[in-house]
């Protein structure tokens, strides 16, 4: 089928591209836009490695076609950094707690938990687990990931003192 023009906003930057209808969103991000931080793990919607934020909500980018994103907004791991280019508190907490090993599932984990913390600055452990329940990690056993999200939440609340109380001992 002949390529169609789409316009997608990714990490606040607008891109115009020609895509064949069958190109998945993850292949578009990686192969067309060169945003290779988003990974594919299963291409059938189970592993969560390709998680991105679409119109504010985490989704699996292997289960959408790029053409469906025409006119929409996507956030990827490349957009997580702070305005000054430094790490976000969530990224920093992942580093601090060594919440990754091979790093392959990490962008998906970050996007899933970034969305969580945006809507819920003080998540319980169960809420963290629910948020990453569809993101498979083979390296870590998830323990240090849950710890990272708790740490990030605590630090982010600390930066905005009105946002809640501490729930983790560092």
């Amino acid at each position: 089928m002949k390529p169609r023009e789409i316009s997608v906003t990714v990490n606040a930057k607008r891109y115009r591209s020609e895509v064949p209808p069958r190109l998945t969103l993850v292949d578009y991000l990686r192969e067309v836009l060169g945003l290779i931080g988003t990974h594919t793990g299963c291409e059938h919607g189970v592993c969560g490695a390709c998680s991105v934020i679409f119109d504010g909500q985490p989704i699996r980018s292997c289960l959408m076609f790029a053409i469906q994103a025409d006119g929409h907004e996507v956030e990827t791991v490349e957009g997580l950094a702070e305005a000054d280019g430094g790490l976000s508190p969530l990224q920093d907490a992942f580093w601090e707690t060594h919440a990754l090993q091979c790093g392959y599932c990490t962008p998906g984990m970050l996007m899933a938990t970034h969305a969580l913390l945006r809507s819920n600055p003080d998540p319980t452990v169960d809420e963290i687990k629910e948020a990453i329940g569809g993101n498979l990690c083979r390296c870590t056993g998830y323990q240090q990931i849950v710890e990272a999200v708790r740490l990030a939440a605590k630090r982010m609340r600390g930066a905005h003192p009105e946002a809640g109380k501490d729930t983790i001992d560092e």
Partner: peptide, 9 residues
């Protein structure tokens, strides 16, 4: 039903 990412879609 599935996971947050699948329910969002």
């Amino acid at each position: 039903v599935g996971h947050p990412q699948t329910r969002n879609r």
